[in-house]
Simulated scan of single mutants.
Amino acid sequence: MTAGRSGRRPGSSGARAAILEAAKKRFSEHGFDRTSIRAVAGDAGVDPALVHHYFGSKRQLFAAVVELPIDPEVVMEVFGAVPLDQLGATMVRILVTLWDSELGSAAVAVLRTLVAGTDPGLARSFFVEVALERVRSRIATASDDGSGRVALVASQMLGVLVARKVVELEPLASMPVEAVVAAVGPTVQRYLTGELG
């Protein structure tokens, strides 16, 4: 007797939805770091290879769960490559430019859902373990793991997002990107690498 293969489920159109549902539950309950592709696949009743087939990496799966309009890995690569003393300005420039782009309305809608949603675990996973983890690991030192610093960065950038795109508070709402970078970038840089008080 041969063992059955656990690959693609019959009626694979339902497999993608089952994977997304299982991933959403896992990410919400266990966070990004403690969720594995294998565990998501087990919950969805599919082979892990099928999860990779549909979604690629775990980070891309998370992006699909929260319906991000862009692959966060692209942004993370830039944050990982820029010189540390330019990271604050670069983060502000990239994020504000993204929010102002054609993808911006979808990105803003996702962030609104995450922040105002009924699932704080998913929002926390997104901000702490996905959006800012690479930045945190870059700025971590022996005496400061950087968690408090990236939380301050998140609060600053969420404030800019809400003021610029949700409340449309002038003059910030119509300020050119480089003016926002000049005003906010030094604060973000201080949160990342400067004295906090």
Rank of each mutant, 00 (worst) to 15 (best):
Gly4Thr: 07
Ala44Val: 07
Lys165Met: 12
Tyr54Gly: 01
Val153Ala: 07
Asp144Pro: 02
Tyr54Ala: 01
Phe62Leu: 15
Gly148Cys: 06
Leu132Phe: 15
Leu161Phe: 09
Ala63Glu: 09
Arg8Glu: 04
Val92Thr: 12
Leu103Gly: 14
Val75Gln: 12
Gly7Phe: 09
Ala15Val: 06
Val160His: 04
Arg136Ser: 05
Arg5Glu: 14
Glu133Val: 10
Leu169Lys: 05
Val115Tyr: 11
Glu178Phe: 12
Thr118Asp: 15
Gly159Asp: 07
Phe27Cys: 04
Asp119Gln: 15
Val135Lys: 02
Leu114Tyr: 10
Asp100His: 03
Ala123Trp: 09
Val166Asp: 11
Glu29His: 01
Asp144Val: 00
Ala182Asp: 15
His52Gly: 03
Glu77Tyr: 07
Leu95Ser: 13
Tyr54Phe: 14
Arg5Trp: 10
Ala163Arg: 15
Thr118Met: 09
Leu158Asp: 04
Gln189Glu: 12
Gly11Lys: 03
Gly11His: 08
Ser143Ile: 00
Ile37Tyr: 06
Glu129Phe: 06
Phe126Val: 09
Ala18Gln: 05
Leu20Val: 13
Leu114Met: 10
Thr113Pro: 01
Arg149Ile: 12
Ala154Gly: 11
Ser28Gly: 13
Ala64Glu: 13
Glu170His: 13
Phe55Met: 04
Gly146Thr: 01
Leu169Arg: 10
Val115Pro: 00
Gly117Ser: 15
Gly31Pro: 02
Gly11Trp: 01
Ala89Pro: 03
Met76Asn: 10
Val160Pro: 05
Val108Thr: 13
Thr2Pro: 09
Arg9Gln: 14
Leu122Gly: 07
Arg112Glu: 15
Lys165Leu: 05
Ala116Gln: 11
Leu95Tyr: 11
Ala63Lys: 08
Ser105Thr: 10
Arg164Tyr: 07
Pro72Leu: 09
Met157Tyr: 01
Ser12Val: 04
Arg164Glu: 05
Arg9Tyr: 00
Glu195Ile: 01
Ala39Ser: 15
Glu168Ile: 04
Gly31Cys: 03
Val51Phe: 02
Val135Ala: 01
Val51Leu: 02
Gly159Phe: 05
Val128Thr: 10
Ala182Ser: 15
Leu152Asp: 07
Ile19Lys: 05
Val166Arg: 04
Val51Cys: 02
Ala41Asn: 06
Val110Gly: 04
Phe55Arg: 05
Ser174Pro: 01
Val78Gly: 02
Phe32His: 09
Ala15His: 04
Gly104Asn: 01
Asp47Gln: 06
Val184Cys: 11
Arg16Val: 11
Thr141Tyr: 00
Ala3Cys: 07
Ser36Asn: 00
Phe79Ile: 04
Val162Met: 05
Ala140Leu: 03
Arg59Trp: 03
Arg5Lys: 14
Lys165Ala: 09
Gly121Ala: 13
Pro120Trp: 10
Ala140Met: 03
Leu158Gln: 10
Thr118Trp: 06
Ala182Lys: 14
Arg112Asn: 14
Ala17Cys: 00
Val65Thr: 11
Arg93Ala: 15
Leu84Ser: 05
Asp33Ala: 11
Ala173Gln: 08
Ala89Asp: 15
Ala179Tyr: 07
Glu195Met: 03
Ala49Asp: 06
Ala17Glu: 13
Val184Met: 14
Gly45Trp: 02
Ala131Pro: 02
Ser147Lys: 05
Leu95Gly: 07
Pro10His: 00
Glu73Phe: 06
Ser174Thr: 15
Val75Ile: 13
Val180Phe: 10
Arg134Pro: 06
Leu122Ile: 12
